[in-house]
């Protein structure tokens, strides 16, 4: 049986959900909009959490930052789950072929000992820094407010687990899958004086309570400095010393920094533009963590790259902060 349907009778009754229409007007909505805006519950919570009786389950007061509308934090990448995983799947496919190529062609044998030592000493221990970043972004996911920012924090958190695993694979490529390079890097992380400032900084970030402060500390301050020192400057140094193939293994991280940086910058800019009070608060947080991070990274940066390295990285950070409308 075929049923003839007149197209004129198939006019939609409405274009989108009521809360999306209220924000964006009566027109067909994007998948990002429908997946993001006003998804999180806002009121009439039944019970106070045993683990935080001073707040509701979803509560904007877990940070000192104040926003009239937490959905102002639009992700410029417009990532919801589906677009996020598909984008990362593309990146991992190209990373996978680089790692496979590196392995198959035994490129590790072409690295001189100086390069290998530096990779183990400086690059592999970063997996612990990435693991910290994973936890800090999960913190914002769990205690932040509004799906627009919390979903992006979750994507960031999972990305950092992925990066930690890629860094671990670099160690395994170097040690022939014995795990020795990972153990050595862990020893450095735990005991070597050059790394202790960084480890202390990571531990301090993990006990920080204000989630937006923590977002600035981790995703803006620490990530800018680490990205600059390790994925830019160290990368250039290793290339100059005959370790250019290492760049195949860190390309994912570089591309990732660019992608995520766009989102971080947008969040910082939006939060600062909201009010003077926010800007003052954020300036204080950024200064505090800039000071701590500079102190923590100083011995490492100097040993790894020389006296100027850290100030170059700090200049990069200052530029980014200024561009976001702070100071």
């Amino acid at each position: 049986m075929t049923i003839e349907i007149k197209t004129s009778t198939l006019e939609p009754v409405r274009n989108t959900f009521a809360h999306i229409e209220k924000r964006f007007g009566d027109k067909p909505a994007t998948r990002y909009q429908e997946a993001t805006y006003d998804v999180q519950a806002e009121t009439n919570f039944h019970y106070r959490p045993y683990w935080d009786p001073d707040h509701e389950l979803n509560d904007p007061r877990r940070t000192a930052l104040v926003m009239a509308d937490w959905y102002a934090f639009k992700d410029p990448r417009q990532f919801y789950y589906g677009t996020y995983v598909q984008q990362r799947a593309k990146m991992q496919e190209s990373a996978e072929s680089s790692y496979a190529f590196f392995d198959k062609r035994n490129l590790v044998d072409a690295l001189n000992d100086e390069v290998k030592t530096q990779v183990i000493r400086y690059l592999v221990p970063l997996r612990h820094v990435e693991h910290t970043a994973n936890l800090n972004n999960m913190y914002g996911t769990a205690y932040g407010y509004g799906t627009a920012i919390t979903q992006a924090l979750l994507f960031d958190g999972m990305d950092r687990l992925g990066v930690a695993q890629y860094l671990s694979r670099i160690g395994l490529l170097l040690d022939g899958n014995s795990g020795d390079a990972l153990n050595e890097a862990k020893q450095l992380w735990m005991q070597d004086p050059a790394w202790q400032g960084m480890r202390a900084l990571c531990e301090e970030s993990l006990v920080t309570k204000d989630w937006f402060e923590l977002f600035l500390a981790q995703d803006l301050v620490i990530d800018t400095l680490v990205g600059e020192l390790f994925y830019q400057q160290l990368d250039r140094k290793l290339s100059a010393q005959g370790g250019q193939d290492i760049a195949m293994l860190t390309e994912f991280m570089q591309e990732w920094s660019k992608d995520t940086g766009r989102w971080v910058d947008a969040v910082v800019k939006t939060a600062a533009a909201e009010s003077d009070a926010n800007r003052v608060l954020m300036t204080g947080w950024i200064e505090r963590w800039r000071g701590k991070a500079a102190e923590a990274l100083a011995p490492l940066a100097e040993e790894m790259l020389g006296a100027e390295a850290l100030s170059e990285a700090l200049a990069e950070l200052d530029k980014r902060v200024a561009k976001a409308g702070i100071q």
Binding site: H128, H131, R169, G176, N177, M190
Partner: peptide
């Protein structure tokens, strides 16, 4: 040096399980 083949279980454990550490500077 020929790399030994890692089982899924060993690989996962090396990539993930040792990322955390005992704290020295905070409780």
């Amino acid at each position: 040096m020929a790399a030994k083949k890692l089982s899924l279980k060993d690989k996962y454990s090396l990539l993930t399980r040792d990322l955390d550490w005992e704290f020295s500077y905070q409780d």
